[in-house]
Design a protein around this nucleic acid. Structure first.
Length: 559
RNA sequence: GGCCUGUUGGUCAAGCGGCUAAGACACCGCCCUUUCACGGCGGUAACAGGGGUUCGAUUCCCCUACAGGUCACCA
């Protein structure tokens, strides 16, 4: 067979040689040890937690080593592509601090544009490049055209791959398909010419030369040393529409774009033999691989399952609507990525997570369960470190979008809102009331008359609510500091028979009607409408005398 | 079913031949305390099972079990 002729027959329009292409993609000039990584999503939907996870790894590795992190859009499957998804991905990623040095970016009009010298960064725009390499492989007898249509292939398989195949049928199925596929290797130039003349579409398949009984040794930076069988499958390189499959695009692009570290989910591990063979055929240097474990969730049966699109916590845009701040999510991801992150952070409380020396070695080999409890804890800490004005700004921005009524209330008087968020903030032991921005409303809604919905649950043992409320209304002064304020509460209680000293009260509760705690609780319930609230003295100061007195009066409804 | 990967408390995890098997989250208790939120102290709880190798295995090897992934002209 004259492979050179075959290649010309198949790709008459390709005149470039691989050398021509290589010339346009010179090796990157980077410092020693610099890593070039990429995030290569297919634009089929929103950013998934399982996508942010590896992209964080890529971003850290590149930027920690003065390398390059780029975005490549893998839009090789027109059928699954979702309109606007790529734009959405870029925006969402940016929100989570994933910044790209080059690749697909959004221009001023919000359209996808290229930045950098190794583009195009959309695979759909790289057709001729892939075909150049495909032509080369065909010319070398390492790939061949296959005119069998998808439909014929499906029939041949009898059972569609997505459907259940009985266990016993698997082997027979695979063997018969394999035998059939081997048949496709046998063809003559005349047959090809004939097909081409009739305009039949074809795919280009790799001519596999691997022996599955032989193992290839390869070191994965996360998984360690692996022994995997050689590839013996004539997988598709170029689809009938001339667009490459993931496998082929991966080899060509990561080579040309100078990727040093390929970071991807471990679901790619089984196709690694294909990639190894392809890189070998193409004469490309194999990049370093990092197959990272999937994020899991617990299904109804208590089994771990891959966190999938529909799951709570999958869509990154959901975190936004739930009110999680990106910093918290990023820190949570860091704790999952490197378990010593929290320790480091405790020692470096003021440094951003980007200062953390991220280590590949410390990455977990197995998949972890997504844990909202942990996220909330991280988030509370993150928020507790923010200034009152920062919190005010962020809660307001969030509410304006997801709870406009509340948002308008906050925005109408930012200084007031800020004074509320300032309660117990700063210092060594800041309050940690908020895990999400959505927690703000139930926490401090009572500061707004429109949201003040008191449930007057006074302590059971207190029978003189009115006397307490009246008594306090008479002595309250907004000028009192917290000590003076509390003294007044104690005096009032004492005059009504409530012990002012908690220790004394606990020693002999029967000697009193109750304690100063009960008195405080009555005031708290009347003023905040709840049994739990931040420091009452400060709350009253923020509310102002007028509204305090008003609420004390209103609280006399009795239980 | 073949192939690949994994398995330390409820969760995330240190460990890398000899430890009373860290720590964090969650949970429980106590303390602090006018409530809550913090903070402090303490507690319950783990090496999947079976064989080896070894003076000694959570650590190394094998088998089993279980779990996950994958077997497309999808990525």
């Amino acid at each position: 067979m004259d492979y050179q002729l075959l290649a010309e027959l198949l790709f008459p329009q390709i005149t470039d040689t691989p050398a021509d292409v290589e010339a346009r993609y010179p090796a990157r000039q980077l410092p020693e040890g610099a890593k070039v990584t990429r995030f290569a999503p297919s634009p089929t939907g929103f950013v998934h937690f399982g996508g942010l996870f590896p992209s964080t790894v890529g971003e850290r590795l590149a930027h920690q080593s003065s390398g390059v992190f780029y975005l490549r859009i893998e839009d090789t499957d027109a059928k699954r592509e979702v309109e606007g998804a790529a734009e959405g991905l870029i925006k969402t990623l940016a929100k989570y601090g994933i910044s790209f040095d080059e690749g697909a970016v959004l221009d001023a009009e919000g359209n996808i544009a290229d930045r950098g010298d190794y583009g195009p960064y959309k695979q759909s725009k790289r057709g001729p490049i892939y075909r150049t390499y495909a032509k080369k492989l065909v010319a070398e007898g390492k790939a061949y055209p296959c005119f069998t249509t998808e439909e014929e292939l499906d029939e041949l398989q009898a059972v569609n791959k997505k459907e259940e195949i009985k266990n016993t049928d698997w082997q027979a199925q695979a063997e018969s398909r394999r035998a059939e596929m081997l048949e496709r290797r046998n063809f003559t130039l005349e047959e090809v010419k004939d097909h081409l003349a009739k305009g039949h579409p074809f795919v280009v398949r790799l001519l596999a030369n691997g022996d599955p009984d032989k193992k290839v040794r390869i070191t994965d930076l996360v998984k360690g040393n692996l022994e995997i069988p050689e590839n013996d499958e004539d997988f598709v390189l170029l689809k009938s529409d001339g667009i490459p499959t993931y496998h082929f695009a991966h080899a060509v692009d990561d080579h040309l774009m100078g990727t040093t570290h390929v970071i991807r989910g471990e679901e790619w591990l089984p196709s690694l033999p294909k990639h190894i063979q392809l890189f070998g055929y193409l004469g490309f240097k194999l990049p370093k691989y990092m197959h990272i474990a999937q994020i899991m969730k617990l299904d109804e049966d208590g089994n771990k399952k891959k966190l999938s699109k529909r799951d709570m916590g999958a869509n990154m845009d959901d975190y936004t609507s739930m009110g999680y701040c990106p910093e918290a999510v990023c820190e949570y991801i860091m704790t999952l990525l490197n378990s010593n992150y929290e320790e480091w952070h405790a020692q470096n409380p003021d440094k951003p997570y980007t200062d953390f020396p991220f280590s590949i070695k410390k990455m977990s080999v197995s998949g972890c369960l997504f844990d909202f409890g942990k996220l909330n804890d991280v988030s509370k800490n993150v928020i507790s470190r923010m200034s009152a004005s920062e919190v005010t700004q962020k809660v307001t921005d969030w509410a304006l979008e997801f709870d406009p009524e509340f948002g308008k209330l906050l925005a109408s008087d930012a200084a007031y809102a800020e004074s509320i968020f300032a309660i117990g903030r700063g210092g060594k032991k800041p309050r940690k009331d908020l895990a999400t921005w959505a927690d703000a409303k139930p926490y401090m809604g009572f500061f707004y008359d429109g949201l003040f919905a008191p449930e007057y649950c006074y302590p059971e043992n207190v029978s003189d609510v009115e006397a307490i409320l009246d008594g306090f209304a008479k002595v309250y002064s907004a000028d009192d500091d917290s000590t003076a304020w509390f003294e007044k509460v104690k005096e009032l209680g004492l005059s009504l028979g409530y012990c002012a000293d908690m220790k004394a009260y606990k020693n002999d509760p029967s000697a009193w009607k109750g304690s100063v705690a009960d008195v405080s609780m009555v005031l708290r319930v009347a003023v905040t409408g709840k049994q739990n609230a931040p420091d009452l003295c400060e709350v009253m100061k923020i509310l102002g005398t007028e509204r305090v007195l008003e609420r004390l009066e209103k609280g006399k409804v009795r239980k």
